Computed example of a mutant assay.
Amino acid sequence: MENQLNISSSPHIRSKVTSSNIMLMVTIALLPASAFGVYNFGMDALLMLIVTTATAVLTEFIYEKLMHKKITIGDFSAVVTGLLLGLNMPPTAPLWMGALGSVFAILIVKQLFGGLGQNFMNPALGARCFLLISFAGQMTKFVYDGETGPTPLAYLKEGALSSVNSMDMLIGRIPGTIGETSVIAIIIGAIFLIMLGIIDLRIPGTYIVTFVLFIGIFGQFSDANVGFFDPQFITAELCGGGLMLGAWFMATDYVTSPITKSGQIVYGIVLGLLTGLFRLFGGSSEGVSYAIIISNLLVPLIEKVTLPKPFGKGGEK
């Protein structure tokens, strides 16, 4: 009787990987894009990133303190939310606007739905869309090198492909939000996460390939009026706006993306189709944020359809 075994319910597999480990690695992976944003836009960008991140952490702490809940700011999820929101903000936006967005992301989108693991959409993107609807003028005003002007995506939308320099877009020498301009910096962070096994290519790969196929086929029918699979147009669309930041860092969010492998493929296809549809035929030149949020809402349905059926009663035989 001295050697009795302890029996407990499944699962029995344990891992040293925790939510806080994952969120910390995501934070580190976002540092290249953050550093380039500060280099590109200066002190305004740095202050915005500090304000959005600090406000997100403080909001979570105050809410959980008031509600007598366990303090969870140590899991770095609020840090990731605040940092992602800051990277999605124009560098010239007022700091109070970034703070308001962080409060909305943590309080409304995350905590009021149960906290980490319960939110139905990406909190940072939910806050960005809230700010876009509420303060459209300031959220779409971009200044680069001291001059206010349209983004490369706006030129593409107008059919002015010749006004776009794809190399500048790849490096990041263009107007835009703080973290979306440099594709190189974003890819460095994405490679870091892939090497650690935190994300894989299934969602972002399917997303990007579907988007390329869509704009390659239908670009000639849009206001852009480009040729069938025009390489310069496709390259500019890939490097412009929030596509890369969204594909690698927000569409792959564990909480708001499907858990099934086939569901992730379907999810990526939906993302690509919606982004292409919004960019080519929508009223705005961008569409990544809304595409991801709508796809987040479809995740329960996608999982229901793609969930493998168990063998036995009610399942496949």
Rank of each mutant, 00 (worst) to 15 (best):
F104T: 01
S102A: 12
G101P: 05
L153I: 05
G98S: 08
I108F: 07
K141V: 09
G86E: 03
F135D: 11
L153D: 02
L100S: 09
I133E: 10
A127M: 13
M89G: 09
G146W: 09
G98C: 08
G137A: 13
K65G: 09
N119R: 07
F76K: 00
L83R: 01
K65P: 10
A78W: 00
L58M: 14
T140Q: 15
I73E: 14
I106V: 08
P90N: 02
I106E: 01
V109T: 10
M89K: 05
T59R: 00
V103P: 01
G117P: 03
D75E: 08
F135M: 12
M97Y: 11
F76I: 04
G115K: 01
T140M: 14
Y155R: 09
K70M: 07
F142S: 02
M139N: 05
Y144I: 06
F120E: 12
G86K: 00
L125E: 07
Y155L: 15
V103W: 00
V143I: 05
I133T: 13
L125D: 05
L116F: 07
A93V: 13
M121C: 12
D75I: 03
V79Y: 01
G126N: 05
F130I: 02
A136G: 14
Q138A: 13
Y155I: 11
K65S: 10
A154W: 02
K70D: 13
W96M: 14
L125F: 08
Q118E: 15
K157N: 12
W96L: 09
E64M: 11
I62C: 08
T92C: 12
P91S: 13
F135K: 04
L107C: 11
T81C: 14
W96N: 12
F130W: 03
H68C: 13
G101I: 01
L100Y: 10
M97S: 14
K65E: 10
F135G: 05
